[in-house]
């Protein structure tokens, strides 16, 4: 039996149309049974990566092995072992849920009898038994998503690829999809590769996260590691003008060496472990320097903050934003 592993080395994709490089030298490996998440904003290259590793489009450069098969030379071998839910559901709206599942089973080589059995199993799993014989063109967004997920599970895939599976869903549907995925990963040992824009989603589900921005992986680690990297809290300040922000920056560099911060024009963000406690020190320091920020807040880090910080870091490398 092949192993449910994903191996990607120096993957690049350039779209000739518009000459866009959507994926830039991306490398990562996912172990069997691991829940791996690609976290990034729209247009970061998440979907392109998914489409390459699932055989839909071919890479411009790099090696990709999925379930120990070479995606380029043995796409059919890959397709047999994976389940894929793309960002847009792939459903024929004129069929019923049951017919869709039955068809998918038949395509994967099931006999009619096996297909019937597997179909009713899966309808049960995604709680669509009652709606099974309704035309799926009339399903709600959440039901469509659930049916789409069931379709990806037909062949009991070793690896499941999910491209933003919960985008646009209400919280209750999102929770139920999370539950299925969690169970699949923990109970069946299915390797899962998920892309998401939601930090919370990656945090709840994934064993390991890669943050992707502008086609590049900018950070990889367990959710804990990534959060530790940014600190528990953010003290966000906004000054009246850039001169004041610069003065504040200088004061902090001088008096609080080692403090992690990012400054962008009039904004100054400090990444700290205990925000409330540090807030007092900061206020005192600014007071001494006769500086008064227009706003000052203590926030818990969000995806935006991690991005702000990580992209600031990579800009800094190129000599852009100042960083402490």
């Amino acid at each position: 039996m092949v192993k449910g592993t994903i191996y990607v080395e120096h993957l690049s994709k350039i779209f000739k149309k518009g000459n866009v490089q959507a994926v830039k030298d991306v490398s990562f490996a996912v172990e069997e049974g691991e829940f791996f998440a690609f976290l990034g904003p729209n247009g970061a290259g998440k979907s392109t990566t998914v489409q390459i590793v699932t055989t839909l489009i071919s890479p411009s450069a790099g090696k990709v092995y999925v379930a120990e098969q070479d995606v380029l030379t043995n796409p059919k071998g890959v397709r047999e072992h994976i389940g894929v839910a793309l960002q847009e559901t792939g459903i024929d709206p004129s069929l019923t849920g049951r017919e869709m599942l039955h068809l998918q089973c038949r395509i994967f080589g099931f006999t009619n009898k096996q297909a019937k059995l597997r179909t009713s199993e899966l309808l049960e799993v995604v709680q669509l038994r009652e709606a099974a014989d309704r035309i799926c063109g009339n399903y709600s967004g959440g039901m469509r998503r659930r049916l789409d997920l069931a379709l990806t599970l037909v062949n009991k895939p070793k690896i499941l690829f999910l491209d933003e599976p919960t985008t646009g869903l209400d919280p209750s549907n999102r929770k139920s999809i999370w539950n299925y995925l969690h169970r699949l990963n923990k109970e069946e040992g299915t390797t899962i590769f998920l892309t998401t824009q939601y930090l919370e989603e990656a945090d709840t589900l994934a064993d390991r996260i890669s943050i992707i921005d502008d086609g590049e992986i900018v950070a990889t680690g367990t959710p804990q590691e990534l959060k530790a990297q940014i600190g528990n809290d953010i003290i966000a300040m906004n000054f009246e003008n850039e001169g004041e922000a610069e003065k504040a920056e200088a004061a902090i560099t001088q008096n609080m060496p080692g403090t992690d911060f990012v400054k962008r024009s009039t904004e100054l963000n400090l990444y700290v472990q205990n925000g409330t406690k540090r807030l007092m020190e900061i206020v005192r320091l600014l007071d001494q320097e006769n500086l008064a920020p227009q706003t000052i807040n203590v926030n818990t880090p969000t995806l935006d903050d991690i991005f702000l910080k990580i992209t600031a870091e990579s800009e800094q490398k190129r000599g852009g934003v100042e960083h402490g």
């Binding site: 059919k76 894929v84 847009e88 792939g90 459903i91 024929d92 998918q104 395509i107 994967f108």
Partner: peptide, 16 residues
């Protein structure tokens, strides 16, 4: 229609 509703991609992702 298949291309527009994503079903065509779903088929391409199967071994069919």
């Amino acid at each position: 229609k298949d291309i527009e509703n994503g079903f065509f991609s779903r088929l391409l992702l199967t071994p069919a």
